[in-house]
Amino acid sequence: MRLNDVKPQAGSKKRGRRVGRGVSAGQGASCGAGMRGQKARSGGGTRPGFEGGQQPLYRRLPKLKGFPLVNRKHYTTINVEKLATLAPNTEVTLESLLAAGILTDAKGDLKVLGNGELNVALQVKAAAFTNSARTKIEAAGGSCEIVN
């Protein structure tokens, strides 16, 4: 069998409608498009998503700064510069920071951010670290441990 021998199954291909060829042909005059209106005109119809001038759904939905995350993680954040006041070789956790008065309230797990300088070796246990915070803590001789 060759490519030029391939034919569709008998009866699977129907011929197209011959529109506008008189009343007896079944699709005369308006060719099945109705009397008047945008969809009856040549080239008629609208683009996908068009809603007749109303703001379309794809433009309405993510209005004003996008969708909020459904199950967003809330972190209690602290910068590395705040940890510089602690004594060397201190174990830093969310509870110890609250007890020391460095943090006043806990909105979620602890996340350490990398703003500022650190020259004290600390053992920091937090839920998340930024890359800059991790490098600064380890450069000062401390360690970072991820705790859930």
Rank of each mutant, 00 (worst) to 15 (best):
K65Q: 10
E145W: 03
R2K: 05
K136V: 01
N71R: 14
V112I: 15
F129W: 12
F67H: 05
I137R: 03
N119L: 03
S24N: 13
V147L: 12
P56W: 06
N131F: 13
K82T: 11
L110C: 10
A121R: 07
G108H: 00
G66C: 03
N71P: 07
R15G: 11
C144N: 03
V70M: 10
H74R: 13
G141M: 14
E51K: 01
R21A: 14
G32K: 09
I137T: 02
K107W: 11
I102P: 01
N131T: 14
T104V: 08
Q9R: 15
N115I: 08
Q27R: 10
L94C: 13
D5I: 05
Q123P: 01
A127M: 02
K111W: 05
Y58S: 10
R21N: 15
N119Q: 11
K111F: 06
N115S: 08
G32Q: 09
G43M: 00
L122Y: 09
N119T: 11
E91S: 14
R47N: 00
E81H: 15
P68V: 03
T135M: 15
G53R: 01
K13W: 12
R41L: 15
E117C: 04
T93G: 04
Y58W: 14
G11S: 06
A121K: 10
S96A: 03
E81T: 14
K14G: 04
K65L: 12
Q55A: 05
L86M: 13
G43V: 00
D5M: 09
N131Y: 14
D5S: 09
G49M: 11
N119S: 11
K136S: 01
G20N: 13
C31M: 14
A84Q: 15
K73S: 12
S42Q: 10
R21E: 15
K125D: 09
L3S: 04
T130Q: 02
A127S: 06
